[in-house]
């Protein structure tokens, strides 16, 4: 069924290397997204209406534009418009951070506005200072809400990085294609085995993370 191809030479190691590249791109993008996302999320709760309008537009763009289109815009569009050549990897990190920041910011905003006013009022009534209120009352609740959701963002990021093969990065799917092409004569059915394996590899990368997120969500449910 085409699985034998994987055990030839260093084919399987190459597949894993491709997956490693995807994971590296997604990890980098997640870190940038979380840092920027928290900042933008805090800005979203600001009262200034210009800031609000600007950020709403940003969110709406990310909400309706497929990541693939953004990838094309940055990879082909920026090169044309500004005359700079961005490597495919850099374009991918820029696009996924742009997308991830919006997602993260929306989660932060949701968590912040989801804390009922009564929490702040009760803290005041108990005589807590502003700092104490945030330190002991507000932040612990926000962190508990945020962590499972941010972990979910990681799996979504990993899944989204599969798109980078469309702008020519040699990640796991592309390596798979190369292996199939190279062994076209010897094992004509390689496509089944190789793509099934790639599917499984992605599953093995994402599933444990999803399980962790679900476990934490259940554990911290009040």
């Amino acid at each position: 069924m085409g699985f034998e191809v994987l055990f030839k030479g260093n084919n399987f190691i190459r597949l894993l290397g491709g997956l490693g590249l995807s994971l590296k791109i997604s990890l980098l993008s997640v870190i940038i997204s979380i840092v920027l996302g928290i900042l933008v999320g805090l800005l979203m709760t600001a009262k200034n209406s210009y800031v609000k309008l600007l950020l709403r537009t940003y969110l709406e763009i990310v909400r309706i534009m497929p990541q693939m289109v953004l990838l094309f815009l940055v990879y082909f569009g920026v090169a044309r418009a500004m005359g700079v050549h961005l490597s495919a990897e850099v374009s991918a990190v820029i696009v996924f951070s742009f997308w991830g920041t919006a997602e993260m910011a929306d989660l932060v905003r949701g968590a912040l506005t989801g804390i009922p006013a009564i929490q702040y009022e009760s803290s005041r009534a108990l005589g807590l200072t502003m700092v104490q209120t945030y330190r002991y009352v507000i932040l612990p609740q926000i962190v508990r809400r945020m962590i499972p959701l941010s972990i979910n963002l990681i799996t979504r990021m990993i899944k989204t990085t599969s798109l980078v093969m469309m702008i020519g990065i040699v990640e796991v799917l592309k390596v798979g294609q190369q292996i199939i092409e190279a062994n076209r004569k010897a094992s004509p059915n390689a496509a089944f085995g190789v793509f099934a394996t790639v599917l499984l590899l992605y599953f093995l990368a994402c599933w444990p993370i999803s399980c962790l997120a679900r476990y934490l969500e259940k554990k911290w449910e009040n």
């Binding site: 599969s162 798109l163 793509f195 599917l199 599953f203």
Partner: peptide
Amino acid sequence: NTPLLVQLF
């Protein structure tokens, strides 16, 4: 837990 692109392939 898998991307659509890989599912389609």
